[in-house]
Every structure is written in C-alpha cells, then in structure tokens.
C-alpha cells in the first residue's frame, strides 16, 4: 500500500532551540499513529510543521505523492490534511452548524458576485451546504447542538463539533492534538470509539497527540515516542510499553 504521509528528516528550529530534530516516519491509510513524549518534546511543533504552521529547515513532507513543505496552511488543508487544536479551536462567535460550514468552506461553490446578484446557483450551493452540515452533525449524534453558539458548549461537545468540522470534507488524514484533554471519562470512551470507527470504516489516517496513555494504548496501531525533538521509538503499543528509551524519556535521563 502506498504511504499516505511520508515525513523525512524534518527539522524545525526556534532561534537556538531545535524543537524537531531530523524526524522521519510514514503513515498508511486507515492507520492510527500516536505521538507521545514529555512536554516540550516537539509533538505539537511536528504537527505544525505538517500543517504548514511552522517553518521547516530541512527535510521533506510528501502527502499522497506530492511534496507539501512550504505550502500555506490553507493550501495544505485543501489538499486533505485537516487538524484539531489543543485548546479553543472552535470559532466561539459562530454556532456549531456555522463552524461545520466553515469546515466545508472549500467545497461550497457559491461565488461573491453571484451571491450579490442573487444567483440561484450560488444560493443553492449555500442551502445545500447548510443541509449537509446538519447531516454531518447528525452522523455524530449531535444534531441538537447545531444552533448553539460554540462557546456555550461543554468541552466534550466542543471536541465533537471540532472533529465533525475537521472531517467535513472527507479528508484522508486527520491530525488530532490532545483530543481527550479535559474530557469526562464517558466522553473519553466515546472519543476512543469514534477514532477507531473512523479509521476502520473510512480508511482515514490519524495522527494523534495524546497524554492519556490508556487511550493511546487502546486505539493506536503504532506509537512514536519523541524526546527533545528526536524520535526515540516507533513501534506497536505493546512494544513501546516495554521500551527502555521510552521509560528514559518519561523518567528523565539520570
């Protein structure tokens, strides 16, 4: 199977600090790969590098056969890499439905002057998108939240809306940045099920940053461990649990 994402020798530096140091890995469609490591290990920076939010100093990122390093975040999003954010990624001024509609932005065929002049085609495109956004919320059983302002939703609800928004365009790759943070146990279980279902049923590739280690062990096919910006392990969950380098990363280098 051709790789969905191929990251080779990626380096990101902030001033004198090397946040990501020559990291390489690949991801297949339908695979769930967790990125773990202590705070400051470079997990989110690696996400930002893939999503176009961090300047890459060396290395290549190949997504579905073409290089994407140097593209802007909206171009990378349009190519099919979508992400969620650690905190506050939803648009708080908009409703849940409107958030999902922003997620559909690139797929709505209305044009500016068409809307101004009241063109039927542009109007229909907007109406159809709104119906689709409602359906997408319903698929995740959160249709009832559609018209609530995003900043009035609970943490778990916000996370679900954010995932629906990210997946609205059926992207082949999803980057989840600490999706379980702040979730109650029930919401966390639901999230685990959803992540598994998405990978299995839609062949979605998922890269997951997560501190909740049970969740990571539960859902991932593979675990990559980062420490000080370097990859120190890349193996199935059970193997990683037993890995010496991993223990060292978490317990410190005595």
């Amino acid at each position: 199977m051709a790789a969905l994402l191929e990251v080779s020798d990626i380096t990101v530096r902030f001033g004198g600090l090397t946040a990501v140091d020559r990291v390489s890995f690949g991801l297949e469609p339908g695979q769930i790969c967790a990125l773990i490591g202590p705070n400051g290990a470079g997990k989110t920076t690696l996400f930002n590098a893939i999503a176009g939010n961090a300047v890459i100093e060396g290395g290549r990122i190949v997504f579905r056969g073409s290089e994407i390093q140097g593209l802007t975040p909206h171009e990378i999003s349009a190519r099919g890499i979508r992400r969620t954010f650690q905190t506050g990624g939803l648009f708080g001024h908009l409703t849940a439905l409107e958030n999902v509609l922003v997620g559909l932005h690139t797929e709505i065929a209305s044009d500016f002057f068409g809307l101004l002049l009241g063109s039927r085609r542009s109007h229909q495109a907007e109406v159809a998108a709104t119906a689709r956004a409602r359906d997408l919320l319903a698929l995740m059983d959160i249709a009832a939240l559609a018209d609530h302002p995003a900043d009035a939703l609970s943490g778990g609800q916000q996370r679900m809306v954010e995932i629906v928004r990210a997946l609205a365009t059926n992207p082949p790759l999803l980057l989840l940045d600490e999706p379980a943070v702040g979730l109650a146990p029930a919401a966390r279980d639901k999230l685990t099920q959803i992540i598994r279902r998405l990978a299995r049923e839609t062949n979605l590739g998922i890269l997951l940053i997560e501190h909740a280690i049970e969740l990571v062990m539960d859902v991932s096919d593979r675990v990559i461990v980062l420490n000080d910006g370097k990859k120190v392990a890349d193996a199935p969950p059970a193997a990683v649990r037993a890995d010496k380098a991993v223990l060292e990363a978490y317990l410190g280098h005595a």
Partner: peptide
C-alpha cells in the same frame, strides 16, 4: 489559525 486550517 483555525480558519486557515479549515482551508480559508
């Protein structure tokens, strides 16, 4: 940032 990540 989130707007750009949604393709805007």
């Amino acid at each position: 940032l989130a707007a750009a990540a949604m393709g805007v």
